[in-house]
């Protein structure tokens, strides 16, 4: 992919591989966790019917597994990035700050879709397709400036782009994102988390009867 976009299409992005990986890895974490969460409860009928463990534990444990894989992958990527492509700098300290809203969003979205997918079993397929399409609406493999003018604002300021963007700015741009960008990212993460907790609160009590 990096070959295709970096060389064949000759995208004017410095250190394209760093740009690509800085956005692709968090996207993969988010998308895999959210799609995976749709089966966190539906595949654990036996456990949920016989245990007093809180149902959200299964969702959070699935997200945690994905998060640990993501952390390892991102750590390896950062080591390669500062060894091969760009110098080590203070900007690396901002990585957790830019990563946190993605984690909040992922937990929230995973809770939300895990509970609703018990009621709507085809949500998993719908979500997979939607996220595949949404992937191209986020400037991960291309830069928003490469898009037609009328699309640029949409690609730059859609919620998923605002969520992933700060991490790209920190790692690839080697700087702290602007405050409004960071606030927007946190707002999206927190709103999704509240929606997830709300879904849990609404649906948890009787969820076992729908499994």
């Amino acid at each position: 992919m990096s070959f295709a976009f970096g060389l064949v299409l000759a995208m004017p992005i410095h250190n394209y591989i760093v740009y690509l990986a800085s956005g692709l890895l968090p996207w993969a974490f988010m998308a895999t966790s959210v799609v995976g969460s749709t089966s966190s409860l539906t595949t654990r009928v036996h456990e949920l019917n016989a245990s007093t463990v809180a149902t959200y534990v299964y969702v959070i444990s699935d997200v945690t597994i994905e998060f640990l894989s993501f952390l390892i992958a991102y750590a390896v990527f950062l080591v390669i990035a500062v060894t091969v492509f760009q110098p080590v700098g203070w900007y690396l300290l901002y990585v957790p700050l830019a990563m946190l809203p993605i984690v909040l969003f992922t937990i929230g979205a995973s809770l939300f879709f895990s509970y609703y997918s018990v009621h709507y079993r085809d949500l998993q397929h719908l979500l997979s397709v939607t996220l595949s399409v949404a992937f191209w609406a986020v400037p991960i493999v291309y830069h928003w400036s490469a898009a037609p003018l009328f699309l640029q604002d949409l690609l730059r300021y859609n919620p998923l782009a605002l969520l992933i963007g700060p991490l790209q700015i920190v790692v690839h741009g080697r700087s702290l994102p602007s405050l409004d960008f960071l606030v927007a990212s946190y707002a999206i993460g927190i709103v999704m988390l509240i929606m997830g907790l709300d879904a849990y609160k609404r649906l948890n009590r009787q969820i076992v009867y729908f499994l």
């Binding site: 019917n49 245990s51 007093t52 009787q206 076992v208 009867y209």
Partner: peptide, 11 residues
């Protein structure tokens, strides 16, 4: 029993 144990909530 499951209701007593708190596994199944009463409707």
């Amino acid at each position: 029993l499951k209701m007593i144990a708190g596994i199944l909530p009463p409707l």
